[in-house]
Design a protein around this nucleic acid. Structure first.
Lengths: 120, 120
DNA sequence: AATACAAGTAACCAAATGGTAACCAGAAAT
DNA sequence: ATTTCTGGTTACCATTTGGTTACTTGTATT
């Protein structure tokens, strides 16, 4: 199995393609939104759930756990009752912010809005 | 259903979130790779299939059809035998190139490579 | 007469993803 | 005594996505 990218370099495996790597890390329905929502602040689980009410807490918990395993998100658990958990981006996570910003910017264009309007 | 983005604006529908819009247009396993592979050139179906051998021609055909419907890809069919079809990016499609470039760049970082190595 | 070519399509199947609803802990407030 | 608070987990189900194989078309070559 051989993949070749735009500059005609051979790639023996899809994960050697940089675009594929990025997408397999932050692709999916919720990850970029979550990362973007955390941004530069420290935020509690419940607050995230408020800001993105259309995500179920099961899925939110799962995505956050994955992002934490990837080292993109930092999780601090306070052993209180009721529990408190705070999330923030690690430096690796913050390195994604410019990309996420571009993602958001393109989504603001008329082009994007028109496509969504027509097909969603 | 109400979503609020980083700047704390309310969003009554996930598709009012720019990040979600972009992801629902170019997200998925293959679309960003295909767009990036087309880039600034005109390219035949078979050539794309050579460059991305790990995609089945059924899926490649489907993704290209969607991208064409979105107005991101231009398709010219020559009525010859055997058939010839050429794909290129429309201006709307080309407006994605900076974003795709950023996507690729982040995928080239050590951070990305390390995550892939550990979890794929 | 059979085979190859390019660009798909059709039928079918497997896996990943996402969603729902119920439940848990242990202290504090009603 | 019951309800509330938070940050989850579990079991289960539906949808979406992606993948495999075989087939088509008309001309040209072996």
């Amino acid at each position: 199995m051989v993949t070749r990218n735009m500059s005609n370099k051979f790639i023996d495996n899809p994960l050697n393609c940089p675009v594929t790597r990025t997408m397999s890390i932050i692709g999916g329905k919720w990850k970029p939104i979550i990362l973007n929502c955390i941004g530069d602040r420290t935020i509690r689980f419940g607050k995230l759930n408020q800001i993105i009410p259309s995500i179920s807490n099961k899925v939110l918990a799962g995505e956050l756990k994955e992002l934490e395993q990837f080292g993109l998100v930092h999780r601090i658990e306070f052993t209180e009752m009721p529990p408190r958990v705070e999330y923030s981006l690690t430096n690796a996570g913050k390195s994604l912010l410019p990309l996420l910003h571009e993602l958001a910017n393109w989504g603001k264009t008329q082009t994007a809005k028109k496509i969504i309007k027509e097909f969603a």
